[in-house]
Design a protein around this nucleic acid. Sequence first.
DNA 1: CGCCTATACTTGATTAAATCAAGCGCTCTA
DNA 2: TAGAGCGCTTGATTTAATCAAGTATAGGCG
Lengths: 131, 131
Amino acid sequence: MSEELEPISNPELGSHDPSQCDLAADFIRGASLLQEKWVMMIVYSLLAGPTGFSELVRRGNVNTTTMTQRLNLLEAAGLLVKTVHSTMPPRTSYELTESGRALKPILEAIASWSSEHLKDVNLGACPPTEP
Amino acid sequence: MSEELEPISNPELGSHDPSQCDLAADFIRGASLLQEKWVMMIVYSLLAGPTGFSELVRRGNVNTTTMTQRLNLLEAAGLLVKTVHSTMPPRTSYELTESGRALKPILEAIASWSSEHLKDVNLGACPPTEP
DNA sequence: CGCCTATACTTGATTAAATCAAGCGCTCTA
DNA sequence: TAGAGCGCTTGATTTAATCAAGTATAGGCG
């Protein structure tokens, strides 16, 4: 099973200067990855430390099919590494690489941005999900 | 037509401490919005200044249906304002609010992060899209 | 020992979302 | 006056996410 990530759009976003294309292209590469559903959530969750598959599924309330796919994608992109501890009671753990950990300030910035600018836009996330 | 944004997951992402719930909840609110397809691209594009509908469609290579939906969502979230200049040669422009402009450092951080950590992961974005 | 639960997935069916294709009212340019 | 462009909307199609179920096996429990 191979996961492919296709770029989200053509290059010219704001700057039409070809010398600036790299900047826009960099942004597109990063944004294309981060805007994939669950990606930021998974990375955020892994900031706390290495985690197993089922634990990730439980935390994010993601179904296993999608989680497998996203983890493969993130591994291919070099954001995390999968370590198989034992094959047959399946016991795996996922851990961020340096690239993954480098996203920490960005994710924190998103959190503080939304606390400042998204106060009223409530989606009803926090309190009740488990009894 | 009303756009609804539903939260992407349950709360406990890394911290199980209820006093930290707000931090995680803030992150989820922000990430749920930003990971919507095209959202970051649109904001990035609008950083250059107010832009019309068709221009945004051309820049991002997004189809009009999705663009309308995303713009409504972003307007509802308070990231941009729509200004109708004339009703009947339809001339509208979309402009970032302060909330939207506050995302600039975050988007720039994403660009520089991917230039440092995503070099090899090439998606074939930049050069050819239009003949 | 045999029963039960848990892990890390895969496979196939269903549902939700994004994209394509086309069109509308209107005005400005050629 | 014919054609192109603007800012959308509607309906059909393609693509992606989610649900439901199953697999092999280790370890705890009575």
